[in-house]
């Protein structure tokens, strides 16, 4: 099997990893790096559970080949909290009660964080639009939307 070696910075830590060419970023994170916070909900780019920041942009990591990430900066849900201080979106989603089963939560947090990074004062419409690719079957979204609004206030 052909194996590529790539260098990526994941949650601030530079890593050198050997990977097969067909490996997705999602599998790289979950299987090679044991960062299992990023979830696999469909492996087809349709649910958003696998969302991570790739050079600051939210992407469905199941649709990105790991080889394309050579030299990239990646942030996963495990990289949101600094030491044990939660990111404002993490704290806000707890406070608003926007977590139920928690399977969509990592992707939702990354998408929310990306939204607030580019738009610190989003309207409700902006929030709904930013999260439209992150399916949640449990919450009905209202508390998640509220959480992003709360986080924007404390950002």
């Amino acid at each position: 099997m052909v194996v590529h070696s790539i260098e990526v910075t994941v949650n601030g830590e530079p890593r050198q990893i050997a990977i097969p060419p067909s490996m997705t970023l999602l599998r790289l994170l979950r299987e090679s790096l044991a960062l299992t916070g990023t979830k696999n909900g469909c492996a087809a780019g349709e649910c958003g559970a696998c969302t991570v920041l790739l050079n600051g942009e939210p992407v469905n990591s199941c649709m990105v080949l790991a080889v394309e990430c050579d030299g990239a900066q990646i942030v996963t849900v495990e990289g949101l909290a600094q030491d044990s201080r939660l990111d404002p979106v993490q704290q806000a989603i707890i406070d608003a009660g926007g977590v139920q089963c928690g399977f969509c939560t990592p992707g939702i947090l990354i998408s929310s964080r990306a939204l607030l990074d580019r738009n610190p004062e989003p309207s409700e419409e902006d929030i709904r639009e930013a999260l439209v690719g992150n399916l949640c079957r449990c919450t009905g979204y209202l508390r998640i939307i509220e959480a992003v609004r709360l986080a924007a206030q404390t950002y």
Binding site: A81, L86, I94, T105
Partner: peptide, 12 residues
């Protein structure tokens, strides 16, 4: 607050 919230928001 949910007893499992912190685990679920940190990916652990």
């Amino acid at each position: 607050p949910r007893i499992d919230a912190r685990q679920k928001v940190t990916g652990s």
